[in-house]
């Protein structure tokens, strides 16, 4: 399994880097809107409405943005957490932690593809 993790490393590495951009540009704004602005009541009435959300999500750019906002951070988080686990727990932990995190990222990516497909 460790050999397999090393084999896909060149593929995961650029996704890891791109994931940082997705997180930096999308996640603070998303957390601010659904966490802070909605709580403060400063959002327009239809900001989180179904019509508005589906109207954005069903356009080709919308699908692309949603795919990027899910898949890239999933792999970014999995890769980053895997290496943090190795730093804190030693490389032996990678036999368990790596496969679990990459499985979460892979299943999440498949689920994201299915979710966007069914829109």
């Amino acid at each position: 399994m460790t050999r397999w993790l090393h084999a896909i490393e060149p593929l995961v590495w650029p996704i890891f880097g791109a994931g940082f951009f997705a997180v930096a540009f999308v996640f603070p704004s998303f957390a601010a809107v659904v966490g802070l602005c909605d709580l403060a009541g400063c959002l327009p009435a239809d900001a989180l409405s179904f019509e508005r959300a589906i109207g954005f999500a069903t356009t080709p750019p919308g699908r692309l943005v949603l795919a990027g906002a899910i898949v890239l951070p999933l792999w970014n988080g999995a890769f980053h957490l895997r290496h943090t686990a190795m730093d804190l727990l030693g490389t032996g932990s990678d036999r368990f932690v790596g496969p679990v995190l990459y499985t979460v990222a892979a299943l999440g990516s498949l689920a994201a593809a299915a979710a966007i497909w069914r829109l």
């Binding site: 994931g19 997180v23 996640f27 998303f30 957390a31 179904f50 959300a53 589906i54 999500a57 949603l66 906002a69 899910i70 951070p73 999933l74 970014n76 988080g77 999995a78 980053h80 957490l81 290496h83 943090t84 730093d87 804190l88 979460v104 999440g108 689920a111 994201a112 979710a115 966007i116 069914r118 829109l119």
Partner: peptide, 27 residues
């Protein structure tokens, strides 16, 4: 700060799953 940077990816993974749940619900 290096380790906290790595551990912050737990929040990143969680948020990605929250957005995934949103897209799934939208469908």
């Amino acid at each position: 700060s290096y380790v906290l940077f790595g551990l912050a990816s737990v929040a990143v993974l969680s948020e990605a799953l929250v957005i995934l749940a949103g897209v799934w619900s939208l469908g």
